[in-house]
Every structure is written in C-alpha cells, then in structure tokens.
C-alpha cells in the first residue's frame, strides 16, 4: 500500500493542479475506433459515415449477391451508445423489406443485437449477422409473421413476394418501396 494521502496533501497545499485539462477519449470511443478500423466488410456490404468525426452513428448498406434478396439494397442505421460494448449498438433497418426477421418498422430480430450480445462481439460480428439474415431468413423466429408463414409453407411464393417487394409494390395490403440496386 502506498502513502497516498500524505503525498496528496502536500500537493494540495502547494501548487495548483496541473494535469486534467485534457479531455480523454471515453472507453466506448476507444473501442469503437478499434472496431471501425478493423471493419472487414464482405464485398456485398458498405458503410456510410454522415459525419466522419462521429464514429458512433453510421449506416451499413447490404447488397446481397445471392439468395432471395439478390439485387436489393438495404440500409441499416447503427447507433452506438456510451455504454458500448457493455450494451449492443441499436440497429434499425431503414429500408422497407419483406423479411421474416425484420418488421415493417425496421426492427431487426437478430440474437446478438439483444439477448445474446457479449462485449467480445464487434461491429463486424453484427455485419455478418445481418448479412446472414438475408442469405438464410429464419422462419422459426419471426418478427414479420406473415412473411415467415409464407416462407415455411411455400418457398416459391415467398421468393415471388420478396421480388415483388423489392421491385416496389404491394405484398398483401402493405406497399413496399422499390429497393433494387
């Protein structure tokens, strides 16, 4: 143990404090810098940073080159909070998409975005998770129940619905904006 306090005492009586005028980057900031610098995007993904000085909010664009969603362009917004990586970033899908695991308000059902998030995971893990959702939509865990049912019962019909939605048009009573590349 150190003679912490007496040392301190001496300092206080004498000169005025000298350090501490510098603002330090927060742990969340340091961590996201690392995550961003090491983003290793698959060729189907790209990022957009509206303000490059703000690494805590950005967009991810996924353009799948295979599967049901080939040819589409889907934008996700990422918001990284001050408690990152203790808490996951908030991710929303900004493109309307006919997808069993993404609802019409852009909420995404991906386990690592909520209940299975761990601080060792990175932004890259989420990117791969999202990309996987487009390759293998999961009807077992539906957020858009109608889409999940169609996928489970009739893959052909599901494929057509996806294509229709991406071209821009109605699936059931809901109108989807065109999102082809």
């Amino acid at each position: 143990m150190i003679k912490l306090f007496s040392l301190k005492q001496a300092k206080k009586d004498g000169e005025s404090p000298k350090a501490g005028t510098q603002k330090k980057a927060s742990a969340a900031q340091l961590r996201i810098t690392k995550d961003i610098n090491e983003l290793n995007l698959p060729k189907t993904c790209g990022t957009e940073f509206p303000d490059p000085d703000d690494l805590l909010s950005f967009k991810l664009i996924i353009c799948p080159d295979e599967g049901f969603y080939r040819g589409g362009r889907f934008v996700f917004s990422f918001k990284v909070g001050p408690n990152y990586p203790h808490e996951p970033p908030k991710v929303k899908c900004e493109t309307q998409v006919y997808h069993p695991n993404i609802d019409l308000d852009g909420n995404v059902c991906l386990n690592i975005l909520r209940e299975d998030w761990k601080p060792v995971l990175t932004i890259n893990s989420i990117v791969y998770g999202l990309q996987y959702l487009f390759l293998e939509p999961n009807p077992e865990d539906p957020l858009n129940k109608d889409a999940a049912e169609v996928l489970q019962n009739n893959r052909r019909a599901f494929e057509q619905n996806v294509a229709k939605a991406m071209r821009g048009g109605y699936v059931g009573s809901y109108y989807f904006e065109r999102c082809l590349k």
Binding site: H86, E87, N101, D103, N107, V108, C109, N111, L113, R114, E115, W117, D141, P142, L143, K145
Partner: peptide, 12 residues
C-alpha cells in the same frame, strides 16, 4: 448484462 428478451418472442 441487462435483461433483454428476444425481439421475436416479444413480438409474437
């Protein structure tokens, strides 16, 4: 960790 529930459970 904060208690979170799978979104799909909440929704469906």
């Amino acid at each position: 960790p904060q208690v979170t529930y799978p979104l799909c459970t909440i929704a469906n």
